[in-house]
Design a protein around this nucleic acid. Structure first.
Length: 334
DNA sequence: ATTAAAGCGGCAATGGTCTC
DNA sequence: GAGACCATTGCCGCTTTAAT
């Protein structure tokens, strides 16, 4: 392949938006290809690429080298989800992260940010953004409101639920209101005629969506929402529902049961627990080490308390550091 | 059959009333 | 004032419905 050759490719942005793209020069690196695509299509988000590989019956493979591309390749855009970096005083955990961005994962660390004063509506898929822009123009010129189709609503709700979940799994009524208001403020074509707030339908849908989103997360193994499930008697197989004994959360609070930190399993955390006991037996325990290990093992302690309801005396033996002045004050701040 | 949206119902909190 | 009791309210998981 020569570098100056034109390049024609079929670009899959979404299921509904597949475009033919012609580049004047054939990019020599994947980075170059991505920046050329960003430039020619005006895409303002980061993405990686997958291509249909003729070696594997045209199944998609990650693109690592432009040499792998056939003559007229079909390439799929894979958006990279990014979170804004968080300042250390905004986090619940005392541990500070040096990462500039974090990919969304199932770890509780994703929910580090305080609910913002003004909720920032995320950017939707290219297709949805395009449709909203068109609808906005139509509203401005003709005064016609957008008729929100089922799949458009679905994509909007899904993206908003994801965004809200970064802050909390259980938004309050005013928080739902603020998101709905921010949505119609950013996209006036989504306003509802008939309601005074112009967005109470969105608020209602968001509430339902969030409940369904929690169920989804629960099924994929997120303990922090799973702890609130399984309380109904008639839905469990063996008489008593699984989590019946776990008290239902009060208004405005949740039963917090975080997953283990990334890279740590039960055994690793048990090790940290033992280190802590050993350290606490010293005449002058290393405060920094104790604090670090206590933060690391937070999820393990929560699991013990919720799962086995240990006696206080057991907790004192297993977690002597938990009852020091430093730790009591530190936990109160959480 | 699958999936998302919405309705239903159990449960804890809350507030009012009554009695002591 | 304190407590017991009862009705109401609102949250949220589970189930149903509707669309494909």
């Amino acid at each position: 392949m020569t570098a100056n050759q034109k390049m024609t490719l079929r670009l899959i942005l979404t299921k509904a938006d597949i475009r033919k793209v012609i580049l004047n020069t054939r990019p020599s690196t994947v980075e170059d290809l991505i920046s050329k695509l960003k430039e020619s299509l005006g895409l303002h988000y980061n993405f990686s690429l997958q291509y249909q590989d003729p070696d594997f019956n045209n199944e998609l493979c990650n693109l690592t080298d432009t040499e792998e591309l056939p003559g007229k390749p079909t390439v799929k855009v894979i958006p990279v989800l990014e979170l804004v970096p968080v300042s250390s005083d905004e986090v619940f955990s005392d541990t500070t992260s040096t990462a500039e961005t974090e990919i969304l994962s199932h770890s509780p660390q994703e929910r580090l940010k305080k609910w913002p004063e003004f909720f920032d509506i995320p950017t939707f898929s290219v297709d949805v953004e395009y449709r909203l822009r068109q609808a906005h123009l139509l509203l401005m010129s003709e005064g016609i409101y957008l008729k929100v189709t089922k799949e458009l609503k679905q994509e909007i709700l899904e993206r908003l639920a994801e965004s809200m979940y970064c802050y909390t799994a259980y938004p309050t009524a005013p928080q739902f209101e603020s998101v709905a208001a921010a949505l119609i403020s950013k996209h006036p074509c989504l306003q509802e005629r008939g309601s005074t707030t112009r967005c109470c339908g969105w608020k209602n849908s968001l509430k339902h969506k969030m409940a369904n989103y929690r169920t989804k997360r629960r099924q994929s193994g997120c303990l922090d929402v799973a702890v609130n499930a399984g309380k109904r008697g008639r839905h469990s197989a063996g008489g008593q529902p699984a989590n019946k004994r776990i008290k239902k959360a009060k208004k405005g609070e949740i039963n917090y049961l975080p997953n283990f930190p990334d890279g740590f399993d039960q055994a690793a955390l048990e090790g940290a627990c033992k280190d802590l006991v050993d350290e606490m037996q010293k005449r002058t325990p290393n405060g920094l080490l104790v604090k670090q290990k206590m933060d690391q093992t937070f999820a393990l302690r929560r699991n013990e308390v919720v799962e086995s309801e240990p006696a206080i005396s057991t907790m004192v033996k297993r977690w002597p550091a938990l009852f020091t002045e430093d730790q009591v004050c530190s936990r109160k701040r959480r």
